[in-house]
Amino acid sequence: MSSAFAVSELLESPAATPERKRRLGLLFWICVGWLSLNVLAAIFANVLPLDNPLQQNYSAINVGPSLHHLFGTDDLGRDIFSRVVFGSRVSIEVGLGAMAIGFGVGAPLGMLAAYRRGTLDTVLSLFMYVFLAFPAIIATIAVLSFWTPRSLFKIVIVVGVASVPLVFRVIRASTMNVATREFVVAAKVQGATDRRILVKELLPNVAPIGVSFLLIGVATVITLEGSLAFLGLSVSPPTPSWGNMINESRTILQTNPWLAIFPSAAMCLFLLCLNFIGDRLRSHFDVSDVKL
């Protein structure tokens, strides 16, 4: 009786495995939900029933969380909840904008360098490594200090350019791993053009790594923006961003810890979700791993 049960279980397990592999899991969808909520709130912040993030209320300074002020208020009596929501705009815009520049430039160059090799590869790699030799944070601080007046647009450009060599390096390495396989030669002797090989044969192989690195890159860039804001080099006050809120909280940390906790928690959760989704997607789309 028990042995028959074991056998039937054995027989069923192979069929069940691929089904389970296709599922992304509850945690994944929770992360997607949280990110969507953040993005939607950032987009519709103006029409949501929020306090004006710049409105100062001197009768409610440094108050703790309450029904009226969900996250409390800062030292100028501004609503922290509203400032966190409006502040996410800066982070999301910098994250997506900078990565658009980073991938727009770095990914095609990385794929081309890995596929063509030779002089093109040598020159591009050399250039990128020289670029990488400067610590990104120092380089961005230097450029942003002199490129005034500061605006979100300039920050996106500077951070985006700084991310190009990183994207280049990751995409070049993963393309090279694929470009040396025989199916590329097979496509070539089928008469495929170089462009076709890059787009149809190599891109789908590199895309999963690209997508996961994109999400992790967005997270890294948001952190970088946070660091810049903390140093007072991001968007100028009073415009809120997660980074400059944390910066403002520095002096009043002992009297009002809420001002540091909420933007930090918002940023932390946002980055955690991005990283988790990136990692989950990479393993999900990796069909080459599927074994019978």
Binding site: R181, E182, F183, V185, A186, E201, V287, S288
Partner: peptide, 12 residues
């Protein structure tokens, strides 16, 4: 080609 494991694109 020699090796059918590498002469087909795994994601196509």
């Amino acid at each position: 080609f020699q090796d059918p494991m590498t002469s087909l694109n795994p994601v196509m």
